[in-house]
């Protein structure tokens, strides 16, 4: 069995190419403090103030969400 080298972002596997959560978001055009965006790391909400500096490790699961139309 080979070691895990990926993370799961919004349900999709990707190579672990970022040092911290803030870098992952910045690469998607979401700078720290973007209104209306929330992040969970491994099932727990990560406050926006902690995006920068919270390290990512292989096997991590990240959810990035925003409000959308809803009933």
């Amino acid at each position: 069995m080979s070691a895990v080298t990926t993370i799961r972002v919004n349900g999709a596997e990707e190579a672990l190419g970022w040092g911290c959560v803030g870098d992952l978001l910045a690469a998607r055009g979401i700078p720290p403090g973007t209104r209306g965006v929330a992040v969970a790391l491994n099932g727990a909400v990560l406050r926006a103030a902690d995006w920068t500096g919270t390290p990512l490790a292989a096997g991590d699961t990240v959810e990035i969400v925003r409000p959308f139309q809803g009933g």
Binding site: V9, N10, G29, R35, G36, V37, P67, F68, Q69, G70
Partner: peptide
């Protein structure tokens, strides 16, 4: 007004319901 919470599109995100 109710809204849902959904994963952002991995290509980026369109206009915000918040705005």
């Amino acid at each position: 007004v109710t809204v849902s919470i959904r994963r952002i599109s991995l290509e980026g995100y369109a206009e915000s319901m918040v705005d």
